[in-house]
Amino acid sequence: MRLWGLIRKESLQILRDPSSIAIAFIMPVVLLFLFGYGVSLDAKHIPVGIVIEQPDRETQSLAGAFERSEFFSPQYFSVIQTAQKALDEHQIDGIVWLRSNFSAQLLSNSASPIGVIVNGVDSNQANITQRYITGTWQAWLSHYAESRGQSLQMPVSVEQRVWFNTALSSRLFLVPGLIAIVMTLIGSLLTAMVVAREWERGTMEAMMVTPLRRSEILAGKLIPYFVLGMGGMLFSVALAVWQFKVPLHGSFWLLMLSSALFMLVALAIGLLISIVAKNQFVAGLLAIIVTFLPAFILSGFLFDIHSMPSWIQFITYLVPARYFVAILQTLFLAGDVWSVVLPNIGALLMMALFYFLLVWRKFHKRLE
């Protein structure tokens, strides 16, 4: 009965506090729409200059291939100097140079009939632009050789198959990982700031003199926010599936289990922060620094972990969101791949036990 009374008290406090509802339900909507529609790792409609020194049927055919591609917005130049000036002025991101001897060298073993110049200021964009140009050129060259009844001699024949995300849409990659970021903020920020607020207002001291045991106080604090956090998670998943059309190939109940474990880890971290920092501003700042920033940068949500230096990769093992992002991306895009899901669930379980042990040791029913 005492535990139920405390849970009821916390639930009423949540309902009377608009900021808690905003963090749990409004913030996921803002973040999901911001990243789902405003952030894209796809490169489309790249402004590229096509220099045609001697127009003929072949050059027009190749230029048409760039026009039909959704990846390019071609601009035409007759001399390379004008195109280079446009590249210097950032009007275009790359140049495809069709020299005057383009048709003569086509399908021959002599020097390459086209030249490619790419703006390398943004190395990632430059690599994407170069690969797209190369792919468009090779596809057109193969089609041209086939239309003339000739065979295209290439040292390697590549047959590409894309698994799990056939459209290569960055939205399908970002939205599942964003659920981990949302749950990190909901779990850690809610408990850190709300409990710290009770220390500031003096209500925590009043609770200390009640007959409530330490375990009942901790459970009474965690259960309402666990339910609120899981509600925010379900709301985020519903948005991901129905609004952003992200397929959920894995088990829904496995998603619930892993989400519950991650929510417990986030809540324990938030509660630990509130015990150490009994000020709302300090607790909120610590929650962002300790949970949100590592989850955003070091979880694999936005940046590939394997591309990081080895010592940074080691640090990522200390970030709970790393394991949850791997689970989310696997369950949404690939399905129930147990060799991926089970080790990450095990890591979250160990982290939950570790942080709750710290909370138990740090939380005392006395004023210090």
Score class of each variant (00 low, 15 high):
S274H: 13
H364E: 15
G94C: 02
S307V: 00
V359Q: 03
V337K: 06
G335D: 03
S258D: 00
V121I: 14
I223L: 11
Q329N: 01
D42W: 09
I297P: 06
A65I: 00
G300S: 00
K221H: 12
W311L: 06
I288F: 14
V246R: 02
V237H: 01
K221I: 05
A196I: 06
L349S: 05
V276F: 13
G284E: 06
I50N: 00
Q329W: 05
N344L: 02
Q75T: 09
E53L: 04
F164Y: 07
I80F: 07
M193D: 08
L178V: 08
Q105S: 14
S169V: 08
S142G: 10
G187T: 08
L6T: 06
E216Q: 08
M308D: 06
E89G: 09
A86P: 01
D42P: 15
S258Q: 01
A321E: 07
G94Y: 06
G49T: 12
I345A: 02
T166V: 15
Q150E: 15
V340Q: 05
N344R: 02
L286G: 03
S339K: 05
L107K: 14
F25R: 10
L178A: 12
Q105A: 14
F77K: 07
M204D: 11
H249L: 12
L255Q: 00
Y317E: 10
L353P: 03
V162S: 11
L15V: 09
I117D: 01
L228S: 01
P320D: 08
P18Q: 04
V48M: 07
E205I: 15
L333H: 09
R322M: 13
W163T: 07
A24I: 01
F281S: 15
M263K: 11
S170K: 10
L248K: 09
T210S: 05
S73Y: 13
L286Q: 06
V162A: 15
L302H: 08
D17W: 04
F262I: 04
D336M: 00
I133H: 06
E70K: 11
V79A: 09
L172E: 13
F66K: 01
P176W: 08
L328K: 00
L31C: 07
I269Q: 06
G231H: 10
L3E: 03
L302Q: 14
I46Q: 07
S108N: 11
I273F: 03
F226V: 04
M208E: 12
F332Q: 04
I46H: 08
A104G: 15
G232Y: 03
I92Y: 06
F244R: 06
R2G: 15
N127S: 10
G49S: 11
W242Q: 07
A347V: 03
V246I: 09
I275L: 13
